[in-house]
Amino acid sequence: MIELSLQKKLLFDTVEAALELVLDIDHGSITTLYGKSGAGKTSLLKMIAGLMTPEKGNITINGKIWYDSTKGINLPPQKREVGFVFQDYALFPNMTVKENLLFAQDKTGDSKRIRQLIDIIELGDLQHRRPGLLSGGQQQRVALARALVRKPQVLMLDEPLSALDYDMRQKLQQYIIQVHREYDLTTLLISHDISEILKMSDKMLIIDNGKQIAYGDSKEIFTRKNISAKFQFSGEVMSIEKQDFLYIVTILIGRDLVKVAVEGSDLENISVGDQVLVASKAFNPIIRKIR
């Protein structure tokens, strides 16, 4: 259980505003932080990790106080049991994969844990390589394994999958869910990908300008504001072409390109590159067996 209440002045798009959040996060849950860049998502993670100090508030993890401004408690990051996967992975180039993991180990740590992690995240063949020679997905796996060496209570991932291609994402989502269950973690991750959020997280927190916009079941939040349609997907607009009174919009959903014909007024604030929801009545699609 994470209980937190935080206040800090931050710069949002060059405008100073206060981050103010009060949250209770269930033990064992995966929670996604969703919001525009500069909304305060990374700052929130850094405050939980102790890499940034709030002005006021408190952070209690499983009953233990990590931060309390009224009692003058502020544990340094070294004393907080968190695993942090940075956006740039932050693997140390001077160490091999295995040395990166060994570096994370306490003096009392057992080498079994590292062997187990190397197995789960399938790093066996790579363990003697330097991070500079690994692909993005491989680096990501090493960063995930390294974050888990110290048996953290909270695992935090800052846009862990944004730089990876579709197949790699699918695989890493599986790894994250797997270690989350295996090690009984409470996981917080930042993501912009709606399908990723729906697939991975139990709860989601939408923040904007440091304030909570919504917090709750991620499926509910996405479907609540949407439509009674049961046939719906999120995707990225690839192109828009005019055709008589209609526009043919090509949308990438997962690995598939689909085309949707809509009237011009539907496209008023939509342009190529936007994430959109594609919905239809469940009565329209047909199904045919292909395998």
């Binding site: 990790a49 890499l51 070294q78 004393k79 695993g83 942090f84 932050a90 140390f92 974050a147 060496v149």
Partner: peptide
């Protein structure tokens, strides 16, 4: 930051 979070002084 990574080294600090990994418990290093």
């Amino acid at each position: 930051e990574a080294a600090y979070v990994l418990g290093k002084s």
